[in-house]
Write a protein that binds this DNA or RNA. Structure first.
Lengths: 346, 346
DNA sequence: CATTTTGTTGAAAACGTTTCCAAGCTTAAC
DNA sequence: GTTAAGCTTGGAAACGTTTTCAACAAAATG
């Protein structure tokens, strides 16, 4: 913090008025005579005065800023989200502070305690990092204004933004069906995450709706470690061509990247022999990955980012009596990993 | 900000001690008896008390946080830089606030006035956005701790981190020379930016050092609008093959992308007919660009990010009597836009 | 001209902390 | 057994604002 700065007191003395009057000028109150206002403004300039925002926040009980809490600010996955938030914040002339939580519980708790006690008026929490009950319950308990994105917290009535994972899965699977696929397997990520369950359900529902009968082995559980998808895919390609699936719908891009590499290393190619499709465009293994651009289910991250700021300001202004609950639809983005099945396989 | 929260006063009453004692417990002072300490800690838990950081910052004259000011947080160009800063901040258990300035002067000034008056202890300013004198002079004048990255502010002794642009240009040009090129032109960006001047000087120096005599037209001034490089490159390809350059060294990736597209649209190919080389890997026109991966001069952005946090903490701790002035070397990253010149052109 | 209304101003309290200083108590030293 | 030293504790001031309230002057009303 600054070494030595002018304060209202200094300005008051310099302009020969009271503290109250200086404060009034600073905050643009209308009940101060033009002559005195000018004198105060001159003094402010002369002393190079800026109000101390900590003192101001303390007495006004309002910090004039909000914060965004994300697991990793550097991930290119968040580019569009952040872009939307930047634009949303600028449109409202808000001080938006972006904070990167990391994996450590301790680090995250420190940030939250710092931000929610006098430094910001409200926060936006992105992603499953924050699904653990205690923190959400604490914020809800002390009535600190916050908004969850893509978190799906069920046990309390909190403000949240979600994407329609189940419907996204439907669109993805129907795309494969339209191409002519019938033997479509699902590579499913960590079932403890609600989004993976939703995507799985969307897959299941759509397969049933199209009368596609599947055996047990049509769902492969990848679990938390995406790299498992590599060997599972590779293994799968060993099946006789009658039994072999012609398409894979994956929970996310990490899994898809591993699956595609497994397929390629087994001597097959995508999409000629197998179509692969997933949620989100590839951002994680970009360096290692050498394959065609993904066909994927995209999230409207820019819009979510932009709107989230708007919703938070609504909450701060007290305009959100009912809990906000918005669901955003996904879009299928066509790339080079899906194609009609091979003739011989039909 | 929170609706209603316990304060030290409440804790003091609950534990039947004075404010001073509660404060001592919170701040881990050693001169408080175990029995009382326990009682206070119990009360803190019971009342769910957290200290108000605005009040704390006010009286301690220290905010326990730093901020990073960047033009655009969402640009993938900054991923590595941000990654380094995240790691650097976590290593020091610091509250790091990332702020996105945007283009508007007004917006940026608001952020700076907000952050530098009670909210943070120091800031890091990235890039030429901040080269305008007034802001730097103001911060320097009020002795607010700050560090410039890649800015090159000359008129005052301020702390800064730079990259060795001139040497990067040397390495780039020598790479082309080693491949056998002699007719190497320079596509130069906005000459008002110091980095472009440095890169230009590096080019000039290296060409001279290798006895490569160049006419005036070997330097093409692209200016502020990178898209101009498209038509200039296209035009250039119309020259008879004797006069036509076999390689282009560009100030930055934007210019290179435009140049390559110009060359391709003129019916030539990169690197077969012309080699192209620049500073920074492509991050701006990613969507439109369809060409080979760049050969480029890369900056050690991760290291710069990580170290910048460390340097700022040094400054905050008063360990930087002399102005910090660090220069980082670049690395040539080989890609698919450079190759030996065509036989016929030699 | 007396009285009310309106408009400007300053004194002082408040916001929630930390910290200086003095007071009280205990223990050690002589 | 007196005095000095060392701990622990609380009172009160301070940090830099905003805001309430009352005071006062000037203008408007009758």
């Amino acid at each position: 913090m600054k070494a030595d700065t002018a304060t209202v007191k200094d300005v008051a003395r310099h302009a020969q008025v009271s503290l109250a009057t200086v404060s009034r000028v600073i905050n643009g109150a209308d009940n101060v005579s033009p002559h005195i206002r000018q004198k105060v403004q001159d003094s402010i300039k002369a002393l190079n005065y800026f109000p101390n925002n900590a003192a101001r926040a303390l007495v006004r009980r309002k910090a004039d800023s909000i914060a965004i809490l994300i697991r990793n600010l550097h991930s290119t996955f968040f580019s569009d989200l952040i872009h939307g938030m930047e634009d949303g914040g600028r449109a409202k002339n808000l001080n938006v502070l972006f904070c990167s939580m990391g994996k450590e519980q301790e680090n995250r708790d420190r940030y939250i305690q710092f931000l929610t006690n006098g430094i910001t008026d409200g926060i936006i929490l992105y992603g499953p990092l924050f699904s653990d009950q205690p923190i959400i319950e604490h914020l809800h308990g002390v009535k600190f204004p916050f908004l969850l994105i893509e978190n799906n917290f069920q046990s309390l009535p909190v403000h949240q933004i979600l994407i329609n994972n189940q419907d996204g899965a439907r669109v993805a699977v129907e795309h494969l069906i339209e191409l002519g696929h019938t033997k479509i397997v699902h590579f499913m990520g960590d079932p403890n995450r609600k989004i993976n369950l939703d995507r799985f359900n969307g897959y299941l529902y759509t397969m049933h709706a199209h009368g596609l009968n599947m055996g047990e082995h049509y769902v492969r559980h990848i679990g938390q470690d995406s790299e498992a998808a590599y060997s599972i895919a590779r293994e799968m390609m060993r099946l006789p061509s009658q039994e072999r699936p012609t398409a894979i719908f994956c929970s996310d891009d990490k899994i898809a990247a591993q699956a595609i590499m497994g397929i390629m290393d087994a001597g097959f190619s995508v999409p000629e022999n197998v179509s692969v499709l997933c949620f989100d465009r590839l951002t994680h293994y970009e360096d290692q990955y050498r394959g065609p651009d993904f066909t994927y289910v995209g999230q409207p991250l820019y819009e979510i980012g932009r709107d989230s700021i708007m919703y938070l300001t609504e909450i701060l202004e007290g305009n959100a009596q009912e809990p906000i609950m918005k669901t955003y639809d996904t879009t299928l983005v066509l790339g080079g990993t899906t194609a009609p099945p091979e003739r011989s396989a039909q």
